[in-house]
């Protein structure tokens, strides 16, 4: 797909019914954005609890797999809230996103974060009970990726 086709696709998404609906409303964007932030609190909290445990900074008396496991369902809930509010927010300003560097950084970091979370961090951590140095590494990588996702997400609004 060349950039012309991609732009066409983004243009079509911006013209979509949902995009139109949100753009024509004063309050819908702010309200969806607020729920998006509540999703951030849930997902961010879940990831932090797990990553801080990996780094040895919280609930050290409990095994890693227990902490990761307890946060998993809330992590997924946060993710569902974020994606289901993020898509309509995107549809309402797809062209702006197309030209926003922050948007592309966020989408790249998000893809990386999801792959890392579900294919590396969780499979690795749900098996093991013992701490080791490599878990600290996993925790640092995870925190860095998700901080980039959330941080660049905020910067979409500044452009």
């Amino acid at each position: 797909m060349d950039s012309g086709q991609l732009f066409f696709l983004f243009d079509r998404m911006e013209q979509s019914f949902i995009g139109e609906l949100i753009r024509n409303s004063i309050w819908m964007f702010p309200v969806i954005e607020s729920v998006h932030l509540i999703g951030l609190a849930i997902l961010g909290g879940s990831i932090l609890m797990g990553d801080l445990r990996l780094l040895g900074f919280v609930l050290n008396s409990r095994p890693i797999n227990y902490v990761i496991n307890e946060t998993l369902v809330w992590l997924k809930l946060g993710l569902v809230i974020l994606v289901s509010t993020g898509i309509p927010l995107f549809l309402s300003e797809a062209i702006k996103c197309y030209y926003s560097r922050a948007f592309w950084i966020k989408m790249s970091a998000l893809t990386l974060g999801l792959i890392f979370l579900f294919f590396i961090r969780n499979p690795l951590c749900l098996k093991t009970e013992k701490d080791s140095f490599r878990f600290r590494l996993v925790g640092i990588v995870s925190i860095s990726i998700w901080a980039t996702v959330a941080g660049s997400g905020r910067w979409i609004g500044f452009s």
């Binding site: 951030l40 609190a41 909290g45 932090l48 609890m49």
Partner: peptide, 18 residues
């Protein structure tokens, strides 16, 4: 500063939720 304010939601409210 605004971004840091938003990110600290994860520390403050994210841990409080649990």
């Amino acid at each position: 500063i605004e971004s840091a304010h938003v990110l600290s939601i994860c520390f403050f409210i994210g841990t409080l939720i649990f």
